[in-house]
Write a protein that binds this DNA or RNA. Structure first.
Length: 627
RNA sequence: GGUCCUGUAGAACAGCCUGGAGUGUUCGCCGCCCUGUCAAGGCGGAGGUCGCGAGUUCAAAUCUCGUCAGGACCGCCA
């Protein structure tokens, strides 16, 4: 099977890095080969070679006396030229060719005449003089353009196979493939073992809504699709595989966003006998490899900076700060303990006064500044104070007259305000101050995104709180198997919201790339966590019994991480949505316009699994089909 | 569940605020011409349920209400 062997030798993206290896190895003498070359590889040294190319008619330029067809495949574009005087029958066929017909072209590679070289094309120095031309498949007029012009997203998804031909998705999906490949290599090189886990699992309601799959063999019972391989990877640790990883598909039945789909892909990993530092290193190696193939290796300099969750909230007002968006937030409370300005004095004692400097933001008009105040109120602040640093370093502000010279100077100095800067102050509860200023910080920086064009700001956010307030008391912020910080154990019952956990997030440019934690391997500690969240024994048993059962027979200390592949690829491709990195994504409402999913199933299918639609749903469905 | 934006020819838009005949732009499509283009060029032509449904009005793409779809965000996303 010589052809199979070749495919294994040269399995991937010829255009990016295998062109030279491919050239010369490809057996042009094989009589049954459909093509001798791709549309992206012919060069000057191939002149006079007889070739056969296959591809789509990217553009046809008919000059009457000479005809050009740009033949395109995933590897590139090659110009085919047809001369009516030399090959009248070929020209007759060529004149009928329309955009996106699939063609087979045989001919000889030739230098382009002087002055007609196209430097924008890798193959721009040559052309193929057609001696034979066969349409393999014709095409209707296209419902959407294939250039880079904007197209309605619904239309793109409806005709996704055409959309996929566009340069943007060709590049993005090639990039994604290289990212995944590099991650696999990085994980293998660190002795991680790739192991698959099931996708039909028991529903363990926790966090997001589960997708459920009714069972035919157990009518009335359902599987769930995993929100992550969490429990199984911990079982693998108990099972003695001390370094596991997987490129895992996960499902969460929640509303979609630009960076969230119903189904998504994670690099999932777990390891035994490790601390946080080990996990950081492994993940940094994998993500670093992805940055390398994404052409952003220069922006990835491990070890990545760390910020505790507490500091992230205080300095940036969010647990996923964008370090590119300018200065951190400063606490100004101590300046205003004795101030005459009552709004600040009260906040300084009961809450906080905090400020942020928008570098060069002082050129805003009064109207724009007022809009910022409106926005701050939308975000939950009681108000917003703005100050513009004038050329003489004086502060222009509606409340300047209420503050002393010393207080104004203190604000300017602590925020490092220079002439032309805009200073924003919020007086409120400390958390509100930081959240509002943090949101404004990102929004103000966003329009100037070009200033940070190629910037990539990665960091670890560490020491997340163990619990957050929930409807029924403390709720795990991460999941109930996350280990608490050893210094905070005694607060577990007395002050649960002050307990730090050993959970960590990886953040890049304000996007949460992934999260993980060191897990609990001690049964007593696990019981104390369940007690803290008030989960009764029977519920623990029904939800997590099979994990806890396994934990009775020797559990290695372990921890892990999961990193969103779609988001990682989105950031590296500099795209605004993960839909641009997924071949067949779904809409915001979870529909696939291409296939029509989700769709009703037949009564027979429902009957097989023992389900019956409610009268309301049946009426709705009947109404839909009637209209 | 909520807030906001969008929906006009095959595509992308303008027109809407201030109601007056489906008006316009660019691309594509079809035909003819054209020997070196590469976003080819020139001339001509076809193509419309203004998302859908009500309402107001002598008159609705335009105003009002509802509804559907797509998108951004909030809620949600351990």
């Amino acid at each position: 099977m010589p052809r199979l062997e070749k495919r294994l030798l040269f399995p991937c993206d010829v255009r990016s890095f295998l062109t030279d290896k491919w050239r010369g190895h490809c057996a042009k003498d094989e009589p049954d080969m459909m093509r001798t070359h791709t549309c992206g590889e012919l060069r000057v040294q191939d002149v006079d070679v007889q070739v056969t190319l296959c591809g789509w008619a990217d553009r046809v330029r008919d000059h009457g006396g000479v005809l050009f067809i740009d033949l395109r495949d995933t590897h590139g574009v090659t110009q085919v030229v047809v001369h009516p005087e030399d090959t009248p029958s070929v020209f007759a066929i060529g004149e009928t060719v329309r955009a996106e017909w699939v063609l087979s072209v045989a001919g000889k590679v030739a230098h382009r005449p002087d002055g007609t070289v196209n430097p924008d094309l890798h193959t721009g120095e040559i052309e193929v003089v057609a001696a034979a031309l066969e349409p393999l498949s014709k095409a209707d007029a296209l419902p959407l353009p294939l250039d880079d012009s904007p197209v309605d997203e619904r239309l793109r998804l409806t005709h996704r196979s055409l959309d996929l031909r566009r340069e943007r998705l060709q590049q993005n999906l090639q990039l994604r493939a290289r990212i995944v490949s590099s991650i696999r290599q990085a994980m293998e090189s660190q002795d991680f073992t790739e192991i698959e886990t099931p996708t039909l699992i028991r529903s363990t309601p926790e966090g997001a809504r589960d997708f459920i799959v009714p069972s035919r063999l157990s009518p009335g019972s359902c599987y769930a699709l995993p929100q992550s391989p969490q429990i199984y990877k911990q079982l693998l640790m108990v099972g003695g595989f001390d370094r596991y990883y997987q490129i895992a598909r996960c499902w969460r039945d929640e509303d979609a966003r630009a960076d969230r789909q119903l189904e998504f892909t994670q690099l999932d990993l777990e390891a035994s006998f490790c601390h946080e530092e080990d996990v950081y290193q492994w993940v940094e190696k994998a993500v670093g490899a992805a940055f390398e193939v994404g052409g952003r290796g220069a922006h990835f300099t491990p070890p990545l900076p760390r910020l505790t969750w507490h500091d992230a909230i205080r300095l940036y007002g969010t647990d996923k700060p964008d370090l590119r968006a300018g200065a951190p937030i400063e606490d100004l409370s101590s300046l205003f303990l004795e101030t005459e300005f009552q709004a600040f004095a009260a906040a300084a004692h009961k809450g906080a006064v905090r400020g942020w400097r928008a570098c060069g933001g002082g050129s805003r008009s009064r109207k724009e500044l007022d809009l910022l105040t409106v926005r701050a109120k939308e975000l939950g602040a009681q108000g917003l104070v703005w100050m513009v640093v004038e050329a003489d370093r004086k502060l222009r502000s509606p409340i300047a007259k209420f503050l002393s010279e010393a207080e104004l100077a203190g604000v300017r100095n602590q925020l490092h305000g220079d002439p032309g800067d805009l200073l924003l102050l919020v007086a409120d509860e400390a958390r509100v101050c930081s959240e509002v200023l943090g949101a404004l910080r990102v929004e103000i920086a966003a329009p100037r995104g070009h200033a940070v064009e190629d910037g990539m700001a990665l960091l670890w956010v560490t020491e997340f709180p163990m619990f957050e307030p929930g409807e029924n008391g403390p709720t795990p912020l991460h999941h109930p198997f996350t280990a608490p910080h050893p210094d905070d154990l005694e607060k577990m019952q007395t002050a649960p919201f002050e307990v730090r956990s050993r959970a960590y997030d990886l953040v890049v440019n304000g996007v949460e790339l992934g999260s993980g934690s060191i897990r609990i391997h001690d049964r007593d500690l696990q019981e104390r966590v369940f007690a803290a969240i008030g989960m009764p024994a029977d519920e623990i048993a029904s939800r997590f019994g099979f994990l806890l059962h396994a934990f009775r027979f020797g559990v290695p200390p372990h921890g892990g991480f999961a990193c969103g592949i779609d988001r990682l690829a989105m950031v590296l491709a500099d795209e605004p949505s993960i839909r641009e990195l997924i071949a067949f994504p779904k809409t915001q409402s979870g529909a696939d316009p291409l296939s029509g999913a989700p769709a009703p199933v037949t009564v027979q299918q429902l009957d097989d699994v023992g389900l019956l639609l409610s009268p309301e749903v049946r009426a709705q469905l009947a109404g839909k089909t009637a209209t």
